[in-house]
Design a protein around this nucleic acid. Structure first.
Lengths: 162, 162
DNA sequence: TTAGGTGCAAATTCTTTGCACCCTG
DNA sequence: CAGGGTGCAAAGAATTTGCACCTAA
């Protein structure tokens, strides 16, 4: 697994660099939380990350894990699966369709595309399972948010500027 | 908006039919909750659906909205955006990549595809906003869950069979 | 040294559940 | 009329926050 280790090392190095340039302290806890997310390929939730880190840092608390995860997210070092910091949302459109998602405000709108009907999936996917349908998520900034321009930077940046 | 109205009517009809065949009672509340989700194109959360329905059915309670939404989801009449009934999950992979998601257990694994690098988006998306990146979600049943076969039907079916 | 970071515990927020009455089939 | 469905209130889960002590820079 030489390749994977190198990948992790690269992520750790990037993490440390971003923390330094953003003026965020490199604590033991933060390194372990980031490492846990970086090493695991299963996209764990906060609780699961907490359990993993606790084996190495028994004093770690769950609230620090949460604080750290959102910090990392604000720094652009990690992302969330699905809507971030939002409640579950529902969709009554059963037709095959795709979503445009605004990464700033969460606006989500359907769009259709015949071209996306039969995307050719790589063979690597066969070992994971049988795919029943594919769905494309186009992420960007919606028209409304774009109007507001650079009104606000990232939360992390705001904090730093104090 | 002739076309849209027809689409909604079709969804309502399908909803009523499924309820009948599944032996689920067609209550005023359920119809209004389903209609609210069907009519709105913004994929609302439970609270928002609650507010919308309450204007027509002032006695509606939030817990009924939740119960109804999960029932509709079990019946396959609606779906959720992102992970269903799950906590937020994190991803440290910053490289452009895609996900295979098991709709049964939630297992999520990365996969890569050069072909998906530059999907041609329909022009209809331009009015929504500026797309920065696209991400493909391949949904299906993972190898592990497939082994377990038809061990369990849908929750709705289970309920019905009592 | 010192401002930011952490752990603890309490507070919030979101969602689910028990129960008695109500309404669809 | 019977059994599922609903509203209410209270419980539970997940996540956030206030505060005093701790530690990286």
């Amino acid at each position: 697994m030489k390749h994977e280790d190198r990948e992790i090392d690269g992520r750790m190095a990037h993490f440390e660099e971003v923390c330094r340039t953003e003026g965020v302290k490199l604590t033991h806890q933060r390194m372990e939380v980031f490492r846990e997310v970086a090493v695991r390929g299963d996209h764990p939730d906060a609780e699961s990350i907490y359990e993993g880190v606790r084996q190495r840092v028994p004093t770690m608390s769950l609230d620090t894990v949460y604080r750290t995860l959102w910090l990392l997210s604000d720094l652009g070092l990690i992302t969330t699966l699905g809507p971030s910091r939002e409640r579950t949302r529902f969709d009554a459109n059963l037709q095959p369709h795709h979503h445009f998602v605004c990464v700033r405000c969460g606006l989500t709108r359907d769009f259709h595309s015949d071209a996306f009907g039969d995307l050719k999936l790589p063979k690597s996917i066969e070992s994971m399972g049988r795919v029943e349908r594919t769905h494309v998520e186009a992420r960007g900034i919606c028209t409304e948010c774009a109007k507001k321009k650079t009104e606000i930077g990232t939360i992390a940046t705001k904090k730093k500027k104090k």
